[in-house]
Simulated scan of single mutants.
Amino acid sequence: MAITVSIELNRELELPASYDEAFDLLADVPASVSHFPKVHKLVDLGDNTYRWEMEKVGVDKHAIQSVYACKYHPDKENGKITWEPVKGEGNGVVSGYWTLKAKGDKATAVKFHTSAELTLPLPGMLKLAISPVIKHEFNSLVDTYMNNLKKAF
């Protein structure tokens, strides 16, 4: 048995960096992911495609791990970085985008959007109880990521 949890997140922030500095960091997937908490391993699959393997959560046979892969498409001219899911990689399907807009020479307005569907090996009756916990954890990870990105500059 398995349950699927859907998550959608939007964030807006201002990075204390020039447009070029901000774009270059966010478009460099390994550099950007180095600021994301609880990533066990980021695997380069080639062609700007990466598999995220998150740290396991739980204990022994009750531990769950989110694994998913995305192909990234940076478009510096239009201020957008998109990612799309790679089918057949892991237990998650994740897509999203960054949009960036310069605010003078030393600041960049950034918007982040992501959608995720995580399929976890849990009994269906747990969905109502576990879904809010997973959504809270994902929100917390993304909030920490946003704070870490601000500190990177």
Results as ranks from 00 to 15, higher is better:
His73Met: 12
Tyr97Cys: 14
Tyr145Glu: 06
Lys103Val: 15
Glu137Leu: 15
Asn78Asp: 10
Lys61Ile: 15
Met54Lys: 03
Ala31Asp: 11
Met125Trp: 14
Tyr19Arg: 03
Phe112Met: 10
Leu100Gln: 02
Thr119Ala: 08
His35Ala: 15
Val67Asp: 01
Ser18Tyr: 06
Thr99Cys: 00
Asp44Met: 06
Leu13Ile: 12
Val94Asn: 09
His136Val: 13
Phe36Gly: 10
Gly96Ser: 07
Asn91Tyr: 04
Gly58Leu: 10
Pro16Leu: 03
Ala107Lys: 07
Asn139Tyr: 09
Tyr68Asn: 07
Gly88Phe: 00
Asp20Ser: 15
Ser66Pro: 08
Lys76Leu: 00
Pro85Gly: 02
Ala69Glu: 04
Ile64Trp: 05
Lys111Ser: 12
Gly58Lys: 01
Leu100Lys: 00
Trp83Asn: 08
Gly90Thr: 05
Lys56Thr: 15
Ala63Tyr: 06
Asp60Arg: 12
His113Leu: 11
Phe153Arg: 01
Lys101Arg: 02
Lys111Cys: 07
Ile130Thr: 08
Gly90Lys: 03
Leu126Ser: 11
Ala17His: 06
Asn148Arg: 06
Leu25His: 07
Lys87Pro: 12
Glu21Arg: 03
Lys56Met: 13
Ala129Cys: 11
Leu9Gly: 11
Phe138Lys: 11
Asp105Leu: 07
Gly104Met: 06
Val67Ser: 09
Leu126Arg: 02
Met146Lys: 04
Met125Ile: 15
Pro16Trp: 01
Leu118Ser: 06
His35Arg: 12
Ser34Ala: 14
Glu84Ala: 14
His113Thr: 12
Leu26Thr: 06
Ala22Arg: 03
Ala31His: 04
Met146Leu: 10
His136Cys: 12
Gln65Gly: 09
Ala116Gln: 08
Phe153Ala: 12
Arg51Pro: 13
Val29Arg: 06
Lys135Cys: 07
Asp47Gly: 00
Val59Gly: 03
Pro121Phe: 03
Leu25Met: 14
Trp83His: 08
Met54Leu: 14
Met54Ser: 03
Ser115Asp: 14
Asn78Gly: 12
Ala27Gly: 01
Val43Lys: 13
Thr119Cys: 07
Val57Ala: 05
Val59Thr: 03
Cys70Val: 15
Ser66Met: 15
Lys101Tyr: 00
Pro74Val: 08
Phe23Thr: 11
Ile134Asn: 05
His113Glu: 10
Arg11Glu: 14
Ala17Thr: 09
Val67His: 01
Arg51His: 11
Leu15His: 01
Lys80Ser: 11
Val133Ser: 08
Leu149Tyr: 01
Lys56Val: 14
Lys127Glu: 14
Thr49Met: 06
Ala116Met: 10
Leu122Asp: 01
Leu141Tyr: 05
Gly92Phe: 00
Glu77Cys: 11
Gly104Tyr: 06
Leu120Phe: 03
Val5Thr: 03
Lys56Arg: 15
Thr114Ser: 06
Thr4Phe: 04
Ala22Lys: 01
Glu77Val: 12
Cys70His: 07
Trp98Lys: 02
Asn139Trp: 08
Val110Ala: 00
Leu9Asp: 14
Leu42Glu: 02
Val142Cys: 01
Val93Asp: 13
Thr82Ser: 02
Ser32Phe: 08
Val5Leu: 00
Ile7Lys: 04
Glu55Asn: 09
Thr4Pro: 13
Ala27Arg: 04
Leu141Ser: 06
Leu118Lys: 05
Val59Phe: 04
Lys103Glu: 13
Phe138His: 12
Val86Glu: 13
Pro85Gln: 04
Lys103Met: 13
